[in-house]
Every structure is written in C-alpha cells, then in structure tokens.
Amino acid sequence: MSVATQEATPAAAKPAKKTKRGPEHRPGLNRWLPYLLLAPAVLAELLIHIIPMLVGIWMSFIKLTKFFIANWSAAPSAGLNNYKVALDFNNAVGEGLLKSFGVTVAFSLITVALSWVLGMAAAVALQPPFRGRGIIRTFFLVPYALPAYAGILTWNFMLQRDTGAVNHVLNQLHLSDGRTFWLIGSNALVSLITVATWKLWTFAFLTLMAGLQSIPGDLYEAASVDGAGNLRQWRNITLPSLRPVNLVLVLVLFLWTFSDFNTPYVLFGTAQPPAGDLITFHIYNASFLTWNFGTGAAMSVLLLIFLMIVTGAYLLVTGRRSRRA
C-alpha cells in the first residue's frame, strides 16, 4: 500500500509548479487560485496515499493477527516486536525478508539497466526520419498499451515447459533441448527480468524519444562539420542534453521495478519460486498467507524507509552534481 507513494510524488509536484505562473493582475484571486487548484490533488493524495500510509504505520505497531482482524481496536500493542521479527535475520521470517530483498535489488538494477539501454537505443535509432518510422514507433508502444495482466499472462503461457512457445522456438533453433523450466528454479529470475523489461522499456523509450526532440538539430550539424562520429555525438551531445530527463527517468524506473507486484503475482500465481520472490510479493504473502498483518505492515514500513533513503540520497547526489556542472 504505502509502497506506491513514491511514484506519485514527482507527478503530483509538476502541476504545482505551473500554477505559480498564473495571471498576475488580479491580486485577490491570485492569492487563492494556487490553493484552489491544488486542493483536489491534495485531497486525493490524502485519501489515496497519506491516510492508508498512516494506517499502515499504525498497523505495524499492533499485533494484528487472525485473532483480531474482525475487531482491530481490540488488537494489543506489539511495540517494536513486529520490527524485531522482520529484522531478526537469524530467524526464518527475517531471513526470508533479507533474501527477498537481495533478489529485489538484483532484479531492479538489471531491469532498470536493460530497460534504459533498450529504450535509449531504440529512441536514438528512430530519431532520423525514414519511411516506416511511425509504424515502428507505434509497434514499440504495444507492451505499454497492452493491459498488464493480459501481457504477463501471455508470457506465462509462453514460458511453460512442455507447451510454451519459448522452449519450442529454442528447440527448433537447436539452442536447447526444449526442456528448460522457466518459471521454477533459478531461471525464474531470468524470466521475471525479461517480462518486467518487456513491460518497462517502452516507457524509457517514450520518455527518451520526447527528450530527444528538444535537442536542437544544429548542434549535431556543427558536430558533424567538426568531424565527430555517431558515437561521439551521442556521448557529447545527446547524453548531456538528456541529463535532466535521465535523472527523473532512472529514479522512476527504479521505484517502479522495486515495488513491482503485478509481474510476479500474475507470472507465478500461487506457486512463486524463491528466485522470483520480489519484496512486495513477499510482504503480501507474509501478510495474507499467514494472516499476520502487523508483521506485514512492519515490513512495508521498512520498505518505505528504504525507498525514501534511496530517493533522498539519489536526489542529493545528482542535485549536487548538476549544480557543480
């Protein structure tokens, strides 16, 4: 629940900036207009994010097991006990959480890197106009336009061992014996990264493509006159010009992948393998399968704190660097 909070913050902040540039000539209205315009967003934010988050934090300090879920107010205080259980790495629950955290970090880093590289490559490749460019661009957007559930379920069918298309194709190409398990065992992480990247890279592509439109063409012309090759142009013009876009893009991609729930949930169903045990899914299982919502909430709060620290550190470091530049 509270995990999703991070995503919305950059988006919600954008309209706020715009409203400041409102009309200057009517002082009365001028004073209230920003608040008026912000009000629906603030209210929605409060309802959808802040209040559930506060409830989640409260839940993490009570003993909310199956004995009390029918009457929450009767649940005794757990103090810091839920956190102790989640953070005791010598114990099965804490150890499971730590492993899941490791899997999630690896998954996020690889998925974000792949998505960014693919998105960047496609955006740059489709920058110069050529016949059929529009069609290819549209084609690339399909994973983004497809409902997530349908897309991931299709992957689930394709990754089956005996009947899946992936094994069939690999077998036909003599790349494998066609008997690989993709959804259980250690390959599960590979499958998860593939599906998540497939889902995510178009967003990177779309964002970078938009960013590329704002780079003036004469910069490239001047560079060609100076004799810079394509790679040099990319490194010295494209990359620095896209820096502000990249800063936001990478952060958003990271937060999305780190708190990805749909992909493992739909891809693995109830039979999730340890190698694909992403943290939000892990927390869901910890709460709903064992009916221990207090510990689940404590894990969520820990995740929230972690993501806040990462985001804060990221913004601090990148912000300092851009000021220096």
Partner: peptide, 29 residues
C-alpha cells in the same frame, strides 16, 4: 522445483525446510 530442475533433496534438506516452516508458524502465533 529443486528436484525437477535437477537438484537433490535429502532427508536433511527436508528437515531444514520444515524447520523454516515451523519458525514461520511460530513467529506468526
């Protein structure tokens, strides 16, 4: 899953897995 993907599960492995399960149950109650 471990067996299907070519691994071996011994009595000790089963015991360790059941110990983990037991700890999880104990933590939840």
């Amino acid at each position: 899953a471990k067996i299907a993907t070519g691994g071996t599960v011994t009595a000790d492995d089963v015991k360790a897995a059941l110990k983990t399960a037991q700890d999880q149950v104990a933590a939840g109650s």
